[in-house]
Amino acid sequence: MLQGALAGLAAGGLYAALAVCLTLMSRLVRVVNFSQAATGMFGAFVAVWLVTAAGLPIWLGSVLGILLAGALSAAIGWIAATWLSEASTTARSAMTVGPLLLLISLSFILFGNKPQPFSPILGGPAFEFGGVVVSQVTVVMVLLAVVVAVAVQLILTKTAVGTQLRALSERPTTAELLGIPSKPLSIAVWAATGVISAIAIVIVAPSQSNDATSLAMLIVPASAAALLGGFTRPGLAVVGGLALGVLSGLVAQIEEVALIRNFLPFLFIVVLLLWTQRKEVWDSAR
């Protein structure tokens, strides 16, 4: 049991980091970014290419791939801020399906449809716990998710830029009328989440199914995790991500239920929605 739970924790950290990004995007720039994981995936694939084909050192290839993901995300953000600044959240979110599909096909064209020969940045065990080996990847991923969530919270509540971002998210027009530069700030949020997603994927991808589609579709468990925090609370998004990772680790261990593993995020979403709507259902039933 413990082994399964701990095995799922690295993936859980990945879901959590992506869920924090989704939460930030939804809260600060009014978008459910379907291309969140795809952007990170593309950056990670470019990193692999830079290392395997162009012969760059792993660290340099990874840094460049991560920066590229940030730039890509910023470019999508520029589109949203330029042409869809007054559009509804639904329209802005729907727009991100475009880059999701584009990045998946582009990576098929450029890199083929096979899993990528990722060379692990981190390897080996970190420590043993209850007779189970915990890998470095697991430790780093969980820490990354927690650190990102804490940093986000601190930036939002303790810095001038954070106050401006919260002001923008509450009343965008009023904020602009006070001179707060909404476009550069929102593009910066896009860039930052692109970078974070790519870092998380670059770390975990070597130990996961890492073809383009699997990585891009990490958006599903990440959304389920973000839903726990209502797409507004980064802390709960982390809890949701880790819980989902541990759950899938457990389920994968038990042969009778191993098949439902792929449906777990979906079940998670359904249960959460039913739970949050329970009052309405109860009220309308009376």
Partner: peptide
């Protein structure tokens, strides 16, 4: 809008143009 603010124009909108979840101090700090 932002460039006009930079030139010294300030528009107080109709209604209550405060940021509800920001504290009074945070509202002023903007």
């Amino acid at each position: 809008r932002v460039a006009r603010v930079k030139r010294g124009l300030l528009h107080i909108e109709q209604g209550r143009a405060v940021f509800p979840s920001l504290t009074v101090r945070e509202n002023l700090s903007l």
